[in-house]
Amino acid sequence: MDIPDRIALKGSLILLILFFLMCTTGCVEEKEEKTPLRVVAAGSLLLPFQAIEKRFETENPDVDLLVEGHGSIQAIRQVTDLNRSFDVVAVADESLIPALMYQPMPGSDKNWVNNFTRFGTTEMVLLYTNNSAYADEINESNWYKILMRDDVRFGCANPILDAAGYRAIMVLALADRYYGRKDILDGVYTGQFSPAIPVKTNGDITRVSLPDVLKPDGLKVTMRDGSIFLLSLLQSGGVDYAIEYKCVAEGSKLPYVRLPDPINLGEGDYQDYYRSAVVDLNFQRFSTINQTRTGSQIIYAACIPANSKNPDLAAEFIRDLSEDNSAISGMPDPV
C-alpha cells in the first residue's frame, strides 16, 4: 500500500467510525434523567393520584411518576392481555386481582402477581346538585322515594363497562331488601329499559341479568360509558341524581346523600348482606373474566406485576397509598 492509499484508508476509517457513531446515536434512546414509575389506575383514582404524584415526586426527585387511567378490568388487561409494562396496578375492586392476575405470565412459571395491598375503601352515595329536582327535600330516609318519582332523572355508568355501574344496580337491589319493597330497583332502573332487564329473586338473593345491549327507554335513565361523565351530566342538568363513589363525590364538591350502611357497599360488617345482590353479564365481554359480579365491600387494591422494572419504587409508592391520605381530595378512606 502506498502512502496516499494509507492516508485515504485512515481517513475512511475515521469517517466510518464517525458515521457509525452518528447512526447508533440516532437509534439509542436518550438517557432519561428520571426513573419512570408507570402506574395504571382505575378512573376513580385519577383525581387523588394527581396530588399523590406531586407528593411522591417531591419525595423522590429522581422519579417521574406516570399515571394512566382505565376502568379497573381494563387497567389489569393492559398488563395481562395487552402485554404493556407497568410497575403498579391500582384498581377499585380487590377481587379482580386474584381473578385476573394470579395466573402465570406467558412464557414464564411466575404469576403476574401473588399478592396485593388493600389501600382504600369507600361507599356508594347519591350525588346531586342544588338544581336537581327535589334537592331541597332529599335526605337519607326518603332518597329512594324521590328517585322513583316520574319527573326525576337518574344517571348511571354502563354496568358492562364500569364497576360503579354494576355497583349502582347492587345498591338499588339492596335497597329493596333493606326497605322491604319490590319496586325500587324496577322503578328506578331495570324497568326503564327496553326490553326491561330481567330480575330474579330467590330468597334474599336478587340476581339481575344484563342483556348484551343496554338501551334506556324514555327519559328516566341516562347511561354513560364511565362514571366520570356523570359529574358533567349532573352539572349540566342532564340528570338529577347519580349513584357514585363517595370519594369521587367529595372530589367533585357536589352535595350527596349518604346511604344506610346495609346498602352502601362500604361497611365490612355487612359483607354477607352485600352478597345478596348479584349482577350477571349476558355475554363474555372479556375472555379472561367470568360474567358474574357479586356485591361486596368496596376495597381499592394495588399490586406490582412480576415484570415491573422498578419493584422497589413500586413498593414505596404502594406504601404511600396505604398511609393516611385523608387530606387528599377524592382519595378513598384508609382501610
Partner: peptide, 18 residues
Amino acid sequence: MRHISFLIVVSLFLSVLL
C-alpha cells in the same frame, strides 16, 4: 483504492442495517 471501495461498501451496508 480497493480498500476505499471496500470501506464504501461496508459503510453502505452498515447504513442500511443501522
